[in-house]
Amino acid sequence: MRFRIATATAVLAMGALVSTACSSGTVSGTSSTTAGANGCVSGPVKVGIIPKLGTDPYMVTVKNAAEAAAAASGNSDVIYTSPSDASGAAQIPFVNQLISQGVNAIMISGSDVNSTSAALKKAQDAGIKVVSFDSDVASGSRGFFVNQADTSLIGAQMLTAMGDMIDHEGDFAVLSSTQTAVNQNAWIDTIRATLSSDPRYAKMNLVTVAYGEEKADVNSQKALELVRAYPDLKGIIVPAGIGLPAAAEALSKNGYLGKVKLSGLAPVSLVKQYIATGNVQDVWWNVPDLGTLAYHTAVQYAKCQIEPKDGAKYSVPGLGEFTVGADGQVLLGPPTIVTPQNTDSFPF
């Protein structure tokens, strides 16, 4: 008997759901905002942010910058969502949430390229402007991609930093992440090419490439092995966020840091104390600036002040003028070499 009642209720509920929808016609996102007929917002802009992971300190830094920018410009409506799983599929409910909440613009760092694209297209159909930052999504499902750094320059900058520290003379090694890491291998290729073509580096010699396997303990151990295996080693380039702090700590503890210099790529906050010694330089970018740029791009896009067209120019308060590149890409700038002099301007 219970079974029949429950079944009947279920069937009724289902019927009710379907019939509600019949009367409403199509299923689209509700836009409860001040967007005009052309989808352009005139008043305050409601921006939703979807990070890869809600608790990722990098993403929280972006969020804080976006909120500060919103407060400064009088638009304080920023919704920061918090996926707990760094997969693209886990971001879909958050896209749907922001569509339901009627935001005007979505800032997303894609956990993968495709997973959110159908949901983001629904957002675009509902008049929401989509801007990706940090990590791009499929280009058809967003307008702009705010890229934090020209990755092709990272390799060159790490070599520049190393050259400056060892006076462009002597042996150095590379301690990379894994043998198959795409970005790292591209940077190492750049380093090799620059060494052989640029006369400034004629006296510098890359002795070996070791791999830290994205693990702190392996990186520490490999860094010490390199120093002991090559007594004349002047420096190590560590192009990996886990590797650079681990190598710096290992060399520092064992008294090698100074005799051997380090350059590489890692969040400044993880290597700040070693940069201060003058024996480590880091290639990084300003993460709060990324948040500010992505936020203002989203707001101006929602107000129809800018379009993702190649060559278009727009200015962002406090950061200056930016030019839209091919495929809606906007570059924050070249990656910066962080030294004891400028370390304080990098809060992350």
Partner: peptide, 16 residues
């Protein structure tokens, strides 16, 4: 909760 029972909310919830 605003928009809790909108067609879009229900449809996406069911699809997920």
């Amino acid at each position: 909760v605003p928009n809790f029972l909108t067609p879009f909310s229900l449809a996406t919830a069911m699809a997920t």
